[in-house]
Amino acid sequence: MKEDTDPINLYEPRVFTSKFMPSPELVARLKGDVNKFLIVRVEDMYKHVTRPVPATRATIHSMLFLTSGAATMKIGSDTYTIQPGQVLIVPAGQVFSFCEKDVNRGYLCSFHDDFLIGKFSSERLKDFEFLRVWGNPRISLDAQTGQFVEHLFSRILLDYAEYGLNNLDIIQPYLITLLCEINRAYTPMSGSTQTSAVSLTNRFKELLFTHVRTHHRVTDYATLLHITPNHLNKTVKAITGKSPTKWIDEAIVLEAKVLLSQRTTSISLVAADVGFTDQAYFTRLFKKQEGITPSTFQKMIDLS
């Protein structure tokens, strides 16, 4: 079994925007160290997206809140659409992609865990399940909470646009309050965070996110979790509706799509990077999940 490596690019915000949204106007709206924090109006950012953003990872958490229109994004293996009054979260390191045709208004706020050090501990941030890769990324707000959240986004943007990151004593507390308001409205995917089955399933997802390129069997994760493969199969299927094998296959293909989207990597190297010595087997798995071969997928990215 090969060692874990990390050949996948994690985009820092300024690199990401220059690659997918090249615009002096947008650059001018980004203040201070955008690898730590940024906030913009969605409409001021989205008009500069000229092509689909392929499977990608970022180094910071992102929160999208809409006041009008709709937004669709693929996060992990699932596609989500949000409407006004909803929030969509992309945790740092999670794979995401989106197209360029949505019409909407609202706010996009991104931040690194380090941005809140001194005000909020990294352990405390883990209490926000929506910032974990296994959390529910789509959060619906009631009317009153939606008003509070919109006000908080607006207040943070007002200070950021005028002063950048010079007034952290204002921006950080507002951001913490914003996270707390969203957390109050948050509903776990399973509907409950209290059962041992949910806890086990979330631990499986966390391990899968970390070891997907080197651990491809249900028995690998059962060993890490100190349970039997049968117990893991029954638990994950009961909570998510999908078997651990399905989760593993989807995660492998998702990882491969990120690598293929980088365009400079050959199919054989992508197969090796996600843990396959047999390129033909990798191609069959990819086609089973996506309906097309890795080479066809890469050509589609080249044409976008």
Rank of each mutant, 00 (worst) to 15 (best):
V40A: 08
D169V: 02
I239P: 01
K237T: 13
P229V: 07
F148D: 14
T201P: 06
L175M: 04
D302Q: 15
F20L: 04
M300V: 09
I117K: 09
T193L: 15
I39H: 06
T293A: 11
Q147S: 13
V42G: 12
W134C: 14
Q94A: 14
G32S: 08
D249E: 15
E206Y: 04
S121C: 01
T245F: 12
G32C: 08
K47F: 04
G85K: 03
E12R: 14
R217P: 01
A185T: 04
N167P: 01
T193C: 10
E25Q: 13
D220E: 06
R124F: 11
T214V: 14
N183L: 03
L116E: 02
L207H: 13
L108I: 11
S77P: 12
R155M: 11
M21L: 12
G164C: 10
K31Q: 10
M300N: 15
L260K: 11
G69N: 13
T228M: 07
P24D: 00
G118P: 01
S97T: 09
V198T: 10
I248V: 05
N136M: 10
T81A: 01
T264E: 13
L64N: 10
H151N: 14
L269Q: 07
L30V: 03
K246N: 08
D44C: 02
T235K: 05
E25C: 00
E129W: 04
N183W: 03
S304T: 13
F20A: 05
D159R: 11
P52M: 03
D44S: 02
L254F: 04
D113Q: 06
S62W: 02
I117P: 04
D113N: 15
C109I: 07
F209P: 09
R155L: 08
A92Y: 07
V270D: 06
D249M: 06
K31A: 03
L158H: 11
S295T: 13
E129T: 15
H231S: 09
W134P: 04
D142Q: 04
I301T: 14
K19W: 03
D44I: 10
F111P: 07
L10A: 00
T293H: 07
T223C: 07
V53S: 01
S295N: 01
R41C: 02
S266E: 11
R14K: 11
T283P: 10
N167M: 14
C109Y: 02
D127G: 13
G93P: 08
I248N: 06
P24R: 09
V42P: 07
T79W: 05
F16T: 06
F130P: 02
L269E: 15
I139Y: 08
L64I: 15
L88D: 03
S304N: 13
Y107L: 00
F111G: 01
A222F: 09
L152A: 01
I227Q: 08
T193W: 07
F282N: 03
W247V: 10
P294Y: 12
S77M: 09
I139M: 06
